[in-house]
Amino acid sequence: MTNDEIKDLILEIIEDIDDEADFDNLNPDEPLRDQLDLDSMDFLDIVMELRKRHQLQIPEEDYPQLATLNSCVNYLEPLLKNA
């Protein structure tokens, strides 16, 4: 997957969690949770969706690496290289 595809994947997952999520002013370097009003319960859904869709097992200690859109891309890029 390209970086843009990974971004789209994350946004698609978030949209699936909350169909009213507003991405217009999303800053890719700021935490997703604060900007989109997601709580830790919603956040777990991102991890679980990645697992369901791409069989990615993300260990709990790596969750912080999914904090911003850009950090998601950095973290996921090597894992989704062949996806």
Partner: peptide, 14 residues
């Protein structure tokens, strides 16, 4: 319905 953080809506989302 619009109150995203409310326990009821969080529950339904989950």
């Amino acid at each position: 319905p619009g109150d995203k953080r409310a326990p009821l809506n969080r529950l339904l989302r989950q």
